[in-house]
Simulated scan of single mutants.
Amino acid sequence: MSEATMELKSVFSALQLTAAAGALDELLMEAETRQWSYRQCLQRVLSYELKKREEKQFARRYKRAAFPELKTLDEFRVDEQPSLGQRQLQQLRELMWLEQHYNLLFLGPPGVGKTHLAIGLGVEALNQGYSVSFVTMDQLLHLLKTQEISRNAQLRVNRIIRSDLVILDDLMFMALDRQEAHLFFQLINKLYGQASIILTSNKGPEDWGELLGDPAVTTAILDRILHRSEVIHLTGDSYRLQMQAGLWRFKYR
């Protein structure tokens, strides 16, 4: 390694261009092989640094999103979902609803792709630079009830509140007591108008009252969630049951 290259690496490191510094030898060899001009070489080096920073930022945002698994919209079998067409899926992918702080409610029986669709849209949002938080309803209630005594819970709740998109999975699958209902309302109230929310549930809003218990809290939550929202009812047979049946037939054919 020449002294000039070492000095360049030192300067890059001082400027916190760490990715470019680490790949400088390779980049300079490529520049010599392709006979780049000084301008082309500089552009390539800076583009490399920018790309690596964007990859790190995405990895950081993805980790903080806390998805249970990676699901993409390209993997979503829209042809097997009679209530959602390709055109509507493309409109959701464009994220205009997120820019305008609209909420999405994916309702339907278990296994029809509600969580897959929610995660897929969350990944699209991450790709476009938005911050996303995914949390199931039981996880959320635990966080809300322990945030006063647990620093980790407090940090997670604060991260959820600061997110551009919050995905609440399996909403209303269980009845809430009075304290839980009020804590849930407080969170929804903080998110209202500041973030978009995607909710997945096998129960429609008309059934939430009996699970929340308090009529006043139920009305307040519904008012904030349903204002500026789109409700999408997913139907059809369970994907999971279809897959299990397919595996069973493959195993015993």
Rank of each mutant, 00 (worst) to 15 (best):
S13I: 11
G108R: 00
D237Q: 15
R93C: 15
M174H: 08
H233C: 15
S150A: 13
A20Y: 00
S131K: 12
K114I: 14
H116S: 10
V11A: 10
L84K: 04
R159M: 14
A216P: 08
Y130F: 15
F250V: 09
Q16L: 14
R151G: 11
Q57E: 09
G108S: 04
T136F: 03
L46P: 04
W97C: 02
L42Y: 09
H101Q: 11
L89M: 11
F76Y: 10
G120L: 09
S150L: 13
L211S: 01
A181K: 00
R249K: 11
I198A: 11
L98C: 14
E54I: 08
E32P: 01
M29S: 08
L168F: 09
A181C: 08
L50C: 12
L17Y: 04
Q90I: 12
L165N: 01
L92Q: 05
V217M: 04
E210G: 04
L155H: 09
L8P: 03
R253G: 13
R224I: 01
T115N: 05
R60F: 14
N158L: 14
D79I: 06
L73F: 06
Y102P: 03
A14D: 06
R61L: 15
L8D: 06
G22M: 04
F12Y: 07
F173E: 11
Q88G: 12
F58G: 02
R44G: 01
L8N: 09
A19F: 07
L226E: 05
A195R: 02
Q81W: 01
M96L: 12
V45D: 02
K63I: 14
L140D: 03
Q81H: 06
E180N: 04
I232M: 02
Q128H: 12
Q154R: 05
K145H: 09
G236D: 03
S201E: 03
Q242S: 12
W36N: 01
L95G: 11
R162D: 11
A31L: 06
A59T: 10
S13D: 14
L27C: 03
K251S: 15
G111A: 07
M29N: 09
G111P: 00
L183A: 12
Q57D: 06
F106D: 03
F185D: 00
V123Y: 05
M6F: 11
G213E: 02
L27K: 00
V123S: 05
L84Y: 03
K203C: 07
E30L: 12
V231H: 06
C41S: 05
R156L: 14
A153Q: 07
Q35G: 10
M1P: 08
S150W: 05
E49R: 07
A175Q: 13
L73R: 03
H101V: 14
L126C: 06
L107G: 01
A220S: 12
Y130G: 07
D138T: 09
L46M: 15
L211H: 01
L15G: 09
R93I: 11
R159F: 13
H182E: 15
R77H: 10
H233I: 09
G204C: 05
M6L: 15
D164P: 01
A175N: 13
F58L: 13
A20K: 00
H233E: 15
V231R: 09
E99R: 11
V157R: 00
A4M: 06
Q147C: 12
D79R: 08
K9R: 06
L144N: 03
D214S: 08
R253V: 06
M174Y: 08
Y192P: 05
